[in-house]
Design a protein around this nucleic acid. Sequence first.
DNA 1: TCAAAAGTGTTTCTCGTACACCCATGT
DNA 2: ACATGGGTGTACGAGAAACACTTTTGA
Lengths: 248, 248
Amino acid sequence: MASRKQADERAFVEAYRPEAYPRPAVTVDLVVLTVLDADLKLLLVRRAEPPFQGRWALPGGFVRVGDGKRDRGEDLDEAAARELAEETSLPRGASRLQQLGAFGAPDRDPRMRVISVAYFALIRPDLAPLVHAGGDAALAGWHSVATLGVNTKLELAFDHAQIVDAALERVRERLERSTIAFDLVPRTFTIPELRAVFDAVTGTTHDPGNFRRKFQQLLDGGQVVEAPGKRITSGKPARVYAFARVAG
Amino acid sequence: MASRKQADERAFVEAYRPEAYPRPAVTVDLVVLTVLDADLKLLLVRRAEPPFQGRWALPGGFVRVGDGKRDRGEDLDEAAARELAEETSLPRGASRLQQLGAFGAPDRDPRMRVISVAYFALIRPDLAPLVHAGGDAALAGWHSVATLGVNTKLELAFDHAQIVDAALERVRERLERSTIAFDLVPRTFTIPELRAVFDAVTGTTHDPGNFRRKFQQLLDGGQVVEAPGKRITSGKPARVYAFARVAG
DNA sequence: TCAAAAGTGTTTCTCGTACACCCATGT
DNA sequence: ACATGGGTGTACGAGAAACACTTTTGA
């Protein structure tokens, strides 16, 4: 009883003067994915500083909070977009960012208490070559997610492996139910190219005939339109499509 | 080019001395749901202090961060569980908490920059009457979610309406795909009771015959077992079931 | 002529849904 | 008797999946 009352009082004081209490650092971490050579790839940066110096890690950084008075800083989504632009030199708006969740185990960063809000982004493969290290990242590069679990040289820093797992689960969940696959092909694309993306993300194969029928529904629904030109292959040239712009 | 370099340098400095930069306050907010009288209910507390004094809000509070050295504070999940216990007097472990996501709009709290990690929890209806205000909440009570959008007297504080919407969407998504419905019935329950939960959460009705067939699959799968006793009704007494304990 | 894209057809299976019943068993 | 739970059957349609096959088109 007494201890409950004490806890209550403590909570009461905190509500009045929360700024007197220690606060965690808050960062955003980015799980940036693309498909290259029909293989799902993850963007990693090499850490230039301790802790985990020399190890690969997710790009990310601190959320700008401002001085707390006039300048309130940026929204979480903004922070994620800014970090993506800064650390990878990708053009802003190159991809939609979606929040994955918050990760805040007390010891996830050995230096101090850091709570990280994770985002994932899917990058069109034609933009993937544009990434190069910026900001405080020494090196940035694409790594096959298939070999992530196997290659011990790719043990990620912090709890980033856990974040990546959560992101992959989420992306696979949403692949069929949403339009995120559109973010993993160039602006114009062929049906086999889109199918290859599905194969790469799910790790399975998709029947060309059945896939075409599903695609036809997208065409009928106006979500996809024909694009001019054709894609030259070793066989019959493939019809080229584009995703319909969202009506304003 | 120059501005990019400047931005890079700033980021570099931050990586070295992040503790010199302002940090946001981090809270957890809880969307606590139950089903009473075949109606989905949300737990709200009345705010005793400004801002939003007198308005209804989600229970929640600050994440304990510790001094940053020895004491690193608690995990986010722990913070959510602690706040649930403190503010509602519900026994710990009374429900599983699941993370919903982080909400961090710069102006979501007029006092200062606050980033909130939202959780949702489903409370068994037999435990629902146990809640009473604790901590710094003046009053705690269950409110029908159906009337939330209509009743202007229930305009929630902060961005809590948005958080509730996200939580409801998530719960409805997972209702059929997971076992969260088990958290919304008493330890022993009848098929019609479980069906009523589905009806209440989705806002639709479910065919008794079809529902029974689905339920049979749960029985066959061993996820549900028969319990002793029967439930007296105005008609034929109903068979009573219980969820199988997770095998250790 | 070859290779790959495009397109069609068919079959099978599984699910969800709707609806119509039956029987069982208490008050 | 009646209300309610328990339980079964059936029919329809949607959709996924597996598989075979034809046609098209450019190198």
